[in-house]
Write a protein that binds this DNA or RNA. Structure first.
Lengths: 144, 144
DNA sequence: CTGCATCCTCATGGATACTG
DNA sequence: CAGTATCCATGAGGATGCAG
């Protein structure tokens, strides 16, 4: 069962779950886990790759064209990291020229869920954030 | 209405919303917005600070003690960035010694929701990820 | 107590060239 | 096509010292 579904069923996720998370974020053990995942999600390219693969299996250069601003080096490194974490599987077809397909594992697919939540939030609030930035910068100019 | 609540009410968030997000992530305009938010959420300290403030208003050194591994420099910078984005408000009490309280804005509070989703996912799957890493590293050792 | 300025180190990541 | 290897620029972030 995915997180959102479970939360929707639980109904009271904030009253008990949120305090639990808050405590865990402070404590050493789960804090590292959360930080760990966040640093993967937060890095420049992982989310882009996962979201691109959410549409289905893709070849190396397909991904490269789709994300287009990513360098070859970074795509390779990102895919290796995702593979190491069990989020992406790598299938090599030993032909000439070689063919390598990347695909989300079930674990990787389950990540698209919470990441999409963040995407929704971003789209819903980007205008407010940019307005806040403009206001903040304008105030700074007056102060200086 | 927050994202989770809306999704819980919509029920079919994956069938329509997910494809929408996927498309947006690829396109230039919203892609920047999402990337923007992700880079804020993904940086080493923002989430820790937001989660610490989710419990209520805190003073500078309260936050510093609570996050403890953060340097003064980084706490200041993180708080400024969050303030600039309209996620955190800063209230100065001009006393001696000075007192500065930080608090989540409504916008900041709305972010704790999707971030908590990621936290849940992290806690639910950290074991699987660490197992995958161990397997991956073990396989590499054999190969090398 | 809160915060800025400086210095220094190191990881991230781009550009380029080369390989199977 | 799918990488690997190398060089290099930039910025994140810690340590320290100073200021209001």
């Amino acid at each position: 069962m995915d997180t959102v579904t479970r939360i929707a069923q639980e109904g009271t996720f904030l009253s008990d779950r949120n305090t639990a998370v808050t405590m865990h974020v402070d404590g050493p053990p789960q804090c590292r886990a959360v930080n760990d995942v966040l640093s993967r999600v937060g890095d420049k390219w992982s989310v882009r790759v996962v979201m691109a693969l959410a549409q289905g299996s893709k070849r190396f250069n397909e991904l490269r064209r789709e994300i287009d601003t990513i360098s070859q080096r970074m795509l390779t490194r990102t895919l290796r990291a995702l593979e190491r974490d069990g989020l992406v599987s790598r299938m090599v077809t030993p032909s000439v020229p070689p063919r390598v397909d990347y695909e989300l594992t079930p674990l990787g697919e389950s990540l698209t869920d919470p990441v999409a939540q963040l995407g929704y939030w971003a789209m819903d609030n980007i205008a407010a954030i940019e307005q806040a930035r403009a206001d903040f910068d304008a105030a700074e100019h007056d102060g200086i």
